[in-house]
């Protein structure tokens, strides 16, 4: 059973990794996404607000986890995404996969984060340090990364 959480409160990556351990688990791979203040030469970010589609979000993440579990031999899988207003330096997303072997765990994590970006209904609005607010536009590079995993 994958562990899927959509929540406003922070999560603890260490505690999440510990939950995925076990006698049949050879290793755990994970990715922790953090709100970044600087975006190249563009204006700095003061905060991000995450909106989502309650109900569809959880279903989309469960479907994503099921695809990873069908493709790789996983002993466990966790996806956590925060919603609401987040400041630079705060955790925003966590994905982890546990497996008997590192290859499956590492590939599943890369797949999960690539696909999450294009297949789960979340939207980011950024508050910039100049006081303006903007909806973040989808990136073609994210679409390409997800498409690269197509079976």
């Amino acid at each position: 059973m994958p562990r899927i959480l959509v929540q406003a409160v922070d999560f603890n990556p260490g505690a999440e990794l510990a939950r995925l351990g076990g006698e049949e688990t050879g290793g755990i791979a994970s990715f922790t996404g953090i709100v970044r203040a600087s975006h190249g030469a563009g204006p700095r970010i003061a905060a991000l607000t995450l909106e989502h589609y309650p109900g569809m979000t959880e279903a989309a993440l469960a479907k994503l986890a099921a695809r990873a579990q069908a493709r790789w031999a996983l002993t466990g899988c966790t996806i956590i995404h925060r919603i609401g207003r987040l400041l630079p330096g705060e955790n925003i997303v966590f994905v982890a996969a546990a497996s008997a072997h590192r290859g499956d765990a590492l590939q599943a994590v890369a797949f999960l984060i690539d696909y999450l970006k294009t297949s789960a209904p979340f939207w980011k609005a950024e508050e910039r340090e100049d006081g303006t607010r903007h909806w973040v536009a989808a990136r073609a590079a994210d679409e390409a990364a997800a498409a690269g995993w197509d079976e």
Binding site: H52, H81, K117, P121, F122, W123, W135, A137, A138
Partner: peptide
Amino acid sequence: VAFFPPVTGG
């Protein structure tokens, strides 16, 4: 039926 922009999570 829901309408929205391209998603930008992660």
